[in-house]
Design a protein around this nucleic acid. Structure first.
Ligand SMILES: [Mn+2]
Ligand SMILES: [Mn+2]
Ligand SMILES: [Zn+2]
Ligand SMILES: [Zn+2]
Lengths: 154, 154
DNA sequence: TTATTAATTTATAACGATTACAATATAATA
DNA sequence: TATTATATTGTAATCGTTATAAATTAATAA
């Protein structure tokens, strides 16, 4: 089974409620649903994608709430920002150390397993965050030849 | 000597002119100066920083030219985008494989030497670009205690 | 040289993602 | 219930960047 397809246990809303509480956050329905979407779907959505998805079942949701909530989650460090495309914030509730690969044809962002990373020259620095971002093509798009490498830039 | 302080040979404007020509680019004075700034200073400046710096000696320079030129250099793949901070494009004319660390106190972006990086699960993918971005504090700011970790988010 | 054409640069408007703000609604507490 | 704090909303503002069209400069042809 590919790393990308590995299934993790689904979080119930109750799981999410408790997790938010542990981090000092009140669990409004929007917070619950936004976090649940991130942790269960793991598609690294943009704010807009979250908004479009959730407004289907909660039509009163506003984009501002999505942005506010994501900012709050970042401050509390219960989600991370995935910065693999300029001017396109994506969000991930999985905090364990892993990398990301964005397929430039279909736009999907895949999780990567990092076997080893060794850096040097960091004596005296303090590191808060490490991000490994790749750009390329997923097997599906590669087979379908959905992308002309020379036509674009990165 | 730290990796960060390692000096590379300075490029003359004639070196730059030739390099641009090799990549099919006409060498206007702005292109020469922008590339020369990137390759010789290696500070990973933003477009705005490039503009502010170069307009001192070339007051007719416009921000649009800086943006246009950076986009052109990216298309020709003679510079790379450094995406270590959301909504802040930084640019680097050094294309060899290395990582970046942004100091969250002083804002500087340091080059990192990568000893080893091993990934798995990438069978079937095609990789065009790899970016390793760290966020933290540089030794200088760490000593000066210039940053309150809990006050911010990343 | 001069005319013609192509490439570059400029100023400005438009854009997309995000944040700020003030008003309203909801939830917690007294 | 009344009071207070928190969350959400709609909208305006902001920021970095891109698009557009006009003006300037450079290259080429006559
Ligand atoms: Mn992920
Ligand atoms: Mn660099
Ligand atoms: Zn794909
Ligand atoms: Zn610093």
């Amino acid at each position: 089974m590919d790393h990308q397809e590995k299934k993790q246990k689904r979080w119930s809303l109750e799981d999410v409620r408790q997790y938010l509480a542990e981090h000092g956050l009140r669990a409004s329905i929007y917070r619950l649903k936004i976090f649940e979407f991130l942790i269960n779907e793991r598609t690294h959505p943009t704010a807009e994608e979250i908004y479009n998805r959730l407004k289907k079942e909660m039509p009163a949701l506003s984009p501002a709430t999505v942005y506010n909530t994501l900012r709050l989650f970042l401050e509390k460090k219960i989600i991370q920002l995935v910065n693999v495309e300029k001017n396109e914030g994506r969000y991930d509730a999985t905090l364990s150390w892993h990398g990301h690969l964005k397929c430039l044809a279909c736009g999907r962002v895949f999780d990567l397993h990092i076997e080893t990373l060794k850096l040097s020259g960091l004596e005296g620095f303090e590191i808060f965050e490490k991000h490994l971002n790749l750009r390329g093509l997923c097997p599906e798009c590669l087979k379908a030849k959905k992308y002309d490498k020379e036509g674009k830039h990165g």
